[in-house]
């Protein structure tokens, strides 16, 4: 599907939801509101014209000092049509939360855990939102721009893995 096509298809499929659209460096991008996120994502996956069945990546970007501060970026690929799309949601620091896509793609579960771990962005209705790369006692979210690169962490009490396994939450 050509570039112009995909935007016009999206335009007809989701009238009024696309805040911004552009195509740069070969990547088509749409920016949507977080309220529309789940409907748009599941439509993009299910609709035969799009069929974005492979969720490549979910990640965050911290534009510290700008407003809105966070961007959550979804990269989608369609195995049927062999096209790609980037979906972005912008979030302010005060309400850094958005609905979880774990019900649409199973891989979203771990990806969202990582975004939460690294940026402190919460995902509502996530089945199991806990840290994934860092440990439970870690303070702060390391990929935020206001987390100093040389910051030290406090010593952690030894945890008995039998009586207090942290994976039980």
């Amino acid at each position: 599907m050509a570039e112009a096509d995909i935007f016009s298809h999206i335009e007809t499929a989701f009238p009024g939801t696309i805040q911004e659209q552009h195509s740069s460096h070969g990547n088509d991008t749409i920016v949507i509101d977080r309220g529309d996120l789940l409907t748009v994502l599941s439509q993009l996956k299910e609709h035969p014209d799009f069929a974005f069945n492979l969720l490549l990546d979910i990640t965050g970007v911290d534009f510290f000092g700008k407003e809105p501060r966070f961007e959550v970026v979804y990269h989608l690929h369609s195995l049927t049509h062999n096209h790609r799309l980037r979906v972005k949601v912008r979030l302010t620091e005060e309400s850094a939360e958005l609905p979880s896509a774990a019900s649409v793609w199973k891989s979203a579960n771990w990806l969202e855990r990582e975004v939460w771990d690294m940026f402190g962005i919460t995902f509502t209705d996530h089945p199991d939102l806990r840290r994934i790369l860092m440990y439970e006692e870690f303070r702060g979210h390391p990929l935020c721009k206001d987390y100093p690169v040389n910051k030290r962490q406090p010593l952690v009490e030894e945890r008995d893995p039998i009586t207090n396994p942290w994976h039980k939450g």
């Binding site: 740069s24 460096h25 070969g26 990547n27 490549l56 990546d57 990640t59 970007v61 911290d62 970026v73 990269h75 790609r84 980037r86």
Partner: peptide, 29 residues
Amino acid sequence: PGEAFQSVEGANGELGFYLVSDGSGRPYR
């Protein structure tokens, strides 16, 4: 300044890089 996502076929699967630049000599993300 800009952003790009490009992937290659790594040995274990699709290895992708998402780079964001702010125009300085260092990657922003």
